[in-house]
């Protein structure tokens, strides 16, 4: 009887209401990027215009934070890809004393509230007298980017039969050939997915960044500051759309790459 499979009407309505509650604000952000009102966000908007895209494009103060965010995200992602993969390889392929404890330590940064990570890094930088720079931001972001890549890679390693590496060696391949022809093709999509997630997370990270950035502003921090000022408000919304696209598209691609596996671990940071 098909009717038994139909959920009750009340449940359907409340589910739709819940989804709307979660996603309408995002639509509002998009809407206000086109409003003609530059001081308050009044609803409905008095008029619609696309002028803010041009204004945003011509505002000199938008570009340095954007470049900084892209640079930090790119460097953190590359670092995470290398270190996270190596970590995963060590954890998946060998057994040693304290392995489970080390595995927990690697995952800890993602479980730790960002504010704790930020505070501890800031005090560590102060003690070691490291001046704030792009690299201190990168270090902060790498702490959780590595975990994302690690989680993706370790899940894939676990699924791979350990003996395919032995089979490759047995057939005469050297270590490099085995990595290139057997390991990389099998890890590839997991690494791509992990890298994209890491990039997206780094790109919109605020909390750790506020503690490790010093005088520089990444794009999300610039936006936070901009919201307080009552001038040209829709510019912030235009930038928000840019942030949304640069983070949402990679996450979407990562999701489709690893569909069917429980591999998008730590996506909730």
């Amino acid at each position: 009887m098909p009717s038994e499979n139909r959920p009750p009407l009340a449940l359907t309505i409340s589910a739709i209401a819940g989804l709307l509650f979660l996603h309408l604000p995002i639509a509002l952000i998009f809407l206000y990027a086109f409003t003609t009102d530059e001081r308050t966000y009044q609803f409905p908007p008095p008029g619609l215009t696309t002028q803010w895209f041009a204004v945003a494009w011509n505002r000199a103060d938008v570009w340095p934070p954007l470049y900084l965010s892209l640079r930090v995200a790119a460097i953190s992602t590359v670092m995470a890809l290398i270190l996270g993969t190596l970590c995963a390889a060590a954890m998946a392929r060998s057994r040693f004393f304290g392995r489970d404890q080390i595995s927990l330590l690697i995952i800890l940064p993602i479980a730790l509230p960002g504010i704790i990570t930020g505070m501890s890094l800031r005090s560590a930088f102060a003690i070691m007298e490291i001046p704030f720079s792009t690299w201190t931001i990168v270090l902060g972001h790498a702490t959780f980017c590595i975990v994302i890549v690690y989680n993706n890679a370790v899940a894939r390693f676990r699924r791979l039969s350990g003996s395919i590496i032995e089979a490759s060696l047995d057939l005469g391949a050297n270590g490099f050939q085995t990595f290139r022809h057997v390991l990389l093709p099998n890890l590839g999509s997991a690494l791509l997915a992990g890298g994209m997630l890491a990039f997206a997370l780094s790109f919109d990270e605020v909390i750790v960044t506020t503690f490790t950035a010093g005088q520089q502003s990444t794009l999300p921090i610039w936006m936070l500051n901009e919201l307080v000022r009552p001038r040209q408000r829709p510019v912030t919304n235009v930038v928000a759309i840019v942030v949304f696209v640069t983070t949402f598209v990679p996450i979407l691609i990562a999701y489709y790459l690893t569909r069917g596996g429980s591999e998008i671990a730590g996506g909730g940071k």
Binding site: S161, S163, I164, E166, A167, H181, P185, N186
Partner: peptide
Amino acid sequence: VNTVFQDYALFPH
């Protein structure tokens, strides 16, 4: 010397 592995260890990709 070559081996036929117990789980066959074929390259899945």
